[in-house]
């Protein structure tokens, strides 16, 4: 499932991972490290809403 940052609109797509944070493709949102932040606006994980 994709998640969207409520602060800036960035979408985390597990199929793509997050290169800006060195997160490989195939990483589910729930499996992101606790200190992961939005790669665009640096908001924490609790700022993300489920999208699908």
């Amino acid at each position: 499932m994709r998640y969207i940052c409520a602060n800036c609109g960035y979408t985390y797509d597990p199929d793509q991972g997050d290169p800006m944070n060195d997160i490989p493709p195939g990483t589910a949102f729930a499996d992101l490290p606790d200190n992961w932040v939005c790669p665009l606006c640096y908001a924490g994980m609790d700022t993300f809403d489920p999208l699908d």
Binding site: I4, C8, D49
Partner: peptide, 21 residues
């Protein structure tokens, strides 16, 4: 206008745990 940021971030219309897409 970044509508996602406006609706969810600025206005607080987040999708809650109990609501579906």
């Amino acid at each position: 206008v970044n509508e996602q940021a406006l609706f969810r971030g600025r206005w607080g219309y987040r999708r809650t745990a109990s609501s579906s897409a």
